[in-house]
Structures are given as C-alpha cells and as structure tokens.
Amino acid sequence: MAIIEIERLAKSYRVYQKKEGLLASVGGLFRRQHREVQAVRDIDLHVEAGEFVAFLGPNGAGKTTTLKLLSGVITPTRGMARVMGHVPWERSNAYRRRFALVMGQKNQLWWDLPAQESFRLHQQIYGIEAAEFERVRDELTSLLDVRSLLGQPVRELSLGERMKMELIAALLHSPEVLFLDEPTIGLDVIAQHNIQTFLRHYQETRGITILLTSHYMKDVAALCRRVVIIARGRIVYDGSLSGIIDQFSGHKVVTLVFPTEVVPTGLERFGEVISHQAPRVKLKVDRNGIGELLSAILAEHTIEDVSVEDPPLEEVIAEVFSSIAKEPAPV
C-alpha cells in the first residue's frame, strides 16, 4: 500500500488567447478565443512511505501542477489521487494537518513581523500543544542555525534565511508527507548546501516521505534515490538517477592520456573528439562495444592512462529535455 497513489490524474486549463492588432482586440470584447492547455496528462505514480522522490522536467512540464494537485490547492480535471488515504482536493482538515507544501517562489510568513510571530500563528492554526511547539521550533531553529534571527522582521532576512524560516513554518506540525517546490531557487551555493544537508538529515531521522522539484541537479543528486522525469504533462522516466544515463545516453566518455605531447592523428575513427588538450584527448564513444574499441586503440597507440566515464548527468538530462521539446506536441 503506497503512501501516495496517483491514477490517471489529469489537469487542463482554459487560457484566453489574445489576438494581435487593434481590430482583434475590439473583437475580443464580444467573443474570446480559448485554448485548452493540458498541464498534467493521465499520470500514474506510486510512492512508498519514507521515499525521497525528485520530479525533474523542463519549465511548464507539470511538476508544480502535480504537487499542487497533491496538496489539494487545485482540483483535477479527472483522475484519482490519494495521499495517506485522503483525497487531497477534498481539503479535509485531517489531511491538511498531516502534510506540508513549501514553495521556493512564494512566501507565507508575515513580511513585516519577526518569523516567530508567524510560527506562533501556525501553532494556533494547527492546534499544536505549547510544549510540543516549543520543542519542535527549538529543534528546527538549531538544526538550521537561525535561532538568533527569530526576532528579526522577515523582510530584513536574506533569501536563504527566509527560506529556512519558510521550511520551519512548514515543519512545525511535523508533517508525514512534505512537498517541496524549488526549495533552493535563487539561493547561493552555501545556502543551497545547508538546506540540502538539513533536508537529508530531517528525512533520515523522521523517515517522512518527500516529493521535491528542483532545477538544481545537485539537490537531486544529494537527496533523492528515485527520480521521476515529467515532460509535457507525462511521466517519461521513473527510476534511479544513474538509470537515467543508462536509458537516455548511448555514449560514454573515454579519456586517453598519451606519453608525449605529440598526439597521434586519426583518432576520429574511434569516436567524436570532444576535447583535445595534449597530451589528453576526450572521445565520445558508443557505449556498446566499448571493449573492442579500447583494445583497438591500445593495439595502435601507446597510451599512458585511460579512463571511461559516463557523460555528466546535467548534459544527459538537458539532452532528454531538448529531445522531448523537439518531438511534435502530443494531441
């Protein structure tokens, strides 16, 4: 029994299409053209308790829409989803006490007040016992190292500090399921790292289930064992991070180091030369038959060192995204 079950979930919007030109605008007063945008198309997904799942996908792929559907913020066009047995868009208070959604691009803390005032408000809204509230707050603030900032108005905090406060606000009621939408967006490397470390620690100790969308592969690589790639509203991949390379990348990178500064010519026969910094040459080669290729190279040339690597993950994913973008739009 999965903690999150999604079956044939779909969401489409009607968007008003504005036409160019003055006459068309006048015409728009009387009749409007609408276009159906399918943000999520019949998604199926099961997530087990304690999983940390990443949603990857190009902008507008439907990641955020899926998280919003699972949070009950929007209602689906059709399909079913259950989180811990609740249908999210029924918006029952019982469900809303058991999960949290953090959005990196929106903030919910009172801008002009210190974060602790917003936390107290959360305590009242979620009906958290005073002792429990203080324990959790103190634990989270010391984990994230923001204890001294509790009394400062939120507008005076840095982006990273504000994000930490947003996280604390979302975790005060100890949710069992956590949805994170771009939690590290716009943060510097250190702040990103801090939040990653915190999330990993928190997820490991609590064993809660987390769904995360992010544009930073570092986030994903550091946190998630399972990756779901969504593109054009559909799931195109569901598996491990390393599996992406196996499935989507047909090549490996072979680095050859020659004993002298003089690099032999004619290496193009073996594969595409992607960099040439004598005495080091990088070749992009087909992943099938890599063994024969290596023995052929070794038979012809004297090689001091050789290494075979997978291409960088970012590259593979960028390739996946752009190949999806090139496909004709599904109807």
């Binding site: 913020v73 208070n93 019982a94 959604l101 929106k106």
Partner: peptide
C-alpha cells in the same frame, strides 16, 4: 492573482475564516 491563496488552502482551518 499571485497564487498566494495556496497557503490558505493548505491550512487545517476553514479557508473562508482565514
């Protein structure tokens, strides 16, 4: 307009009240 209503919808309290 800004989508800020999301947060109100997440809270375990009557949305209209909030």
């Amino acid at each position: 307009r800004s989508g800020g209503l999301d947060f109100a919808l997440l809270k375990p309290i009557d949305t209209q009240f909030l």
